Computed example of a mutant assay.
Amino acid sequence: MKNQTKHSLLCLLLLIYVWLPARAQDSTPKHQSKTEVIKAVVEKYCQDHPFSGAVLVAQNRQLVWKGAKGYANKAAEQKNLINTKFLVGSVSKQFTAMIVLQLVQEGKLKLNDLAIKYFPFLPKEKSTITIHQLLSHTSGLGHYSQLKVKYKKFMYKPTTPVEYAKVIAKMGMVAKPGKKMSYSSMGYILLAAIAEQITGKTFSTLLEERIARPLGLKNTGFTLNTDELQNFALSYDLKKQKAATDNDFRFKLNKPRHQSNTYSTGGVHSTVEDMLVWLKALATNKLLNKELTKKMFTPNLSNYAYGWFINDVRLTKAYKLTNIISHGGSVNGFRAAVSMFNNQQDFVIILGNQPSRIWLLTAEIKKALDRKE
């Protein structure tokens, strides 16, 4: 009897020994999915930074997470949504580059064609500028500060592409054509104006017919009057210029530049979902043949390709990002950061309507994507 009792007690202890670890294992939190991890990264960022906008993340070209924060209209308490439209600033350049390269593919334009062929009023120092140089920021043209106009007045006035080209004709040069990379939005103004001359169509129509409609982009385009757009965000800027360093993140409503001024270099509007479709199309040659697509992503001087930075040194150095194809955008308070990683398999798209450190957010998201589940 004693032996039987002893045996029963030993069995009970053994069961308790086996049951306790299993019980402990059941009580631990389940492993977070990649979607939950990315969402947590964005939430943490928004606790520390005044982000307002939308974010979309894809891995292996499949959606991982998308979400929106902040307000499209603060006064009306209208929140940003996934389908909120934002100006993408200089991300517009990649759309302009695509239109130009399509014209090259069709034999209507050559990369070594001279800009003066279309603008005979260009002076001697600009007479050798080529289409390639305009696309790659190696034309020697300066940026906005080199324009010989009262810029604070000029940016709010309507202008035609040809009138804009005549202003550019008079601007200062920062280098001889082809000698160095010097970022110039003016080059992309000229590119769209050339495309308009060749086709007889406006930049807005070219964007719609050649990119938006073929890809089914319902919320991407260019318009002179953003007030007519549905679900379009207002933009906000810092009340104090030094706010970015002293953490005084109070914002004021922006007075927008005239859209004829932002034009092909900064005036395109889009949503994060449309941008995902656009990036997938670039990665799969839907709009351009393989040869010219390769050229679009081939770095020239200072790693600028055509409408894209390849391993932008500012990002590789400050944020330790590697193997990145990217471009940022900034127009008034609108901000954009569009990135492709892992041979155009992974995408991080951030569009916003007030200043924030969105490249830092890009880096944090990329780290999270790289973690093994």
Rank of each mutant, 00 (worst) to 15 (best):
residue 8 S to Q: 15
residue 17 Y to N: 11
residue 22 A to I: 15
residue 24 A to I: 15
residue 31 H to T: 13
residue 35 T to N: 03
residue 36 E to D: 11
residue 72 A to E: 04
residue 73 N to S: 11
residue 81 L to S: 11
residue 87 L to N: 12
residue 96 T to F: 03
residue 103 L to S: 12
residue 103 L to M: 13
residue 107 G to W: 06
residue 115 A to I: 08
residue 117 K to F: 01
residue 121 F to Q: 06
residue 122 L to G: 06
residue 127 S to F: 02
residue 135 L to M: 14
residue 142 G to W: 08
residue 148 K to M: 05
residue 158 P to Q: 10
residue 158 P to Y: 02
residue 158 P to G: 03
residue 161 P to G: 04
residue 163 E to P: 01
residue 165 A to Q: 05
residue 168 I to Y: 05
residue 170 K to V: 00
residue 176 K to N: 12
residue 179 K to R: 12
residue 188 Y to I: 11
residue 203 F to K: 06
residue 208 E to S: 14
residue 211 I to N: 08
residue 214 P to I: 14
residue 214 P to E: 15
residue 217 L to R: 13
residue 223 T to V: 15
residue 226 T to P: 00
residue 238 L to C: 08
residue 244 A to Q: 10
residue 246 D to I: 14
residue 247 N to Y: 12
residue 262 T to H: 02
residue 263 Y to S: 10
residue 267 G to Y: 00
residue 267 G to D: 01
residue 268 V to K: 07
residue 271 T to I: 01
residue 272 V to N: 03
residue 275 M to V: 05
residue 276 L to N: 06
residue 281 A to G: 07
residue 290 K to G: 00
residue 290 K to R: 13
residue 293 T to A: 10
residue 293 T to E: 08
residue 323 N to R: 10
residue 325 I to S: 10
residue 326 S to G: 04
residue 330 S to G: 11
residue 341 F to I: 01
residue 345 Q to N: 15
residue 350 I to W: 01
residue 356 S to P: 00
residue 358 I to Y: 00
residue 361 L to I: 05
residue 367 K to M: 04
